[in-house]
Nucleic acid binder design. Structure first.
Length: 280
DNA sequence: CCAAGGCCTGAATG
DNA sequence: ACATTCAGGCCTT
């Protein structure tokens, strides 16, 4: 049986949601927490450590989701252009650290920092004659010194990373719980971590905690809202304040529906590509 | 509640 | 060359 909605692997990987993926020939290899994933040219995903994974979010009814978000004409255009773009379900701890690092940075730099972190703190493994570094366990980063973390090029975010890892080891952040509770409760909790504000929290929730109503509002999305949605979502203030972010999000869920996170991913991809932004 | 400024870093820009 | 700007924000004042 052929999948009517195949995943566009290249575009999905190059859409700013994951950073530790490398292409080798026709195959992609990626680090996902303590797992190594391989996606072949036919789009078949496999865990090289034989771990159960739902990286491709196979429970999403993508047909229904795309139908719903495509009611919006701009999203509809983006969907047609990047049909196979998908949201992955990644390891929450890795996702959290990745997006703490992402703030006020750029994709190349995020990638380089994360690679250094895996090389310095992650377990080295050899599988299928290839070398990999897993993502470090929370304990490892929680016990690292600020300077060791800084050596990975993360700058002032180093103490955030350490403290975030500590909160995970101390169960002040419990990903299992955050997955179960609703969007608002999860957000309230995750924003207690230093270095995590509205935008980073939304990324973590959308990409790793199964919260498809998360709609990360970064500078690009604000530009998009101003460009295509100046009537629907009027931006009142110069900078997006806490209050503004909340109000905007409510209007956005109302407009795009409960799967607005997918809408965001399509819009973001489209606008970045239109501006010739590099992903690596 | 909002605006403004600082912040690590390194690639890109002038 | 060398200085300045900018990059998928956050936090403090």
């Amino acid at each position: 049986m052929k999948n009517k909605f195949p995943i566009d692997v290249d575009n999905s990987i190059n859409s700013g949601q994951v950073f530790l993926w490398k292409k080798d020939g026709a195959d992609w290899y990626g680090i996902n927490g303590q797992d190594i994933l391989k996606i072949n040219k036919n789009g078949i995903i496999k865990s090289l450590t034989n771990t159960k994974t739902n990286f491709f979010r196979k429970n999403d009814n993508i047909q229904k989701i795309i139908k719903l978000i495509s009611k919006d004409q701009t999203v509809n255009k983006a969907v047609k252009e990047y049909e196979g773009l998908r949201i992955f379900r990644q390891d929450p701890f890795q996702c959290m650290i990745s997006f703490i690092i992402s703030s006020n940075s750029n994709i190349q730099k995020i990638k380089s920092s994360l690679e250094k972190i895996t090389e310095k703190f992650g377990k080295q493994v050899r599988i299928q004659n290839k070398e990999f570094f897993l993502f470090p366990e929370p304990e490892k980063l929680a016990n690292a010194s600020i300077n060791e973390i800084k050596a990975c090029g993360v700058g002032y975010r180093a103490p955030f990373i350490k403290e975030a890892a500590q909160m995970v080891t101390l169960k002040k952040i419990d990903f299992k719980y955050l997955e179960k509770c609703d969007y608002y409760e999860a957000k309230k909790n995750i924003c207690l971590v230093p270095g995590i504000g509205n935008k980073v929290a939304d990324c973590i929730m959308l990409f790793s905690l199964n919260k498809l109503e998360a709609f990360p509002l970064d500078t690009w999305m604000i530009k998009i809202l101003e460009k295509y949605y100046s009537k629907e979502f009027k931006i009142e203030t110069k900078t997006i304040t806490q209050k503004q972010y909340q109000l905007l999000h409510e209007k956005i869920v109302n407009h795009f529906g409960p799967y607005c996170g997918y809408a965001q991913q399509f819009l973001f991809k489209m606008e970045r590509e239109n501006n010739d932004k590099k992903w690596l």
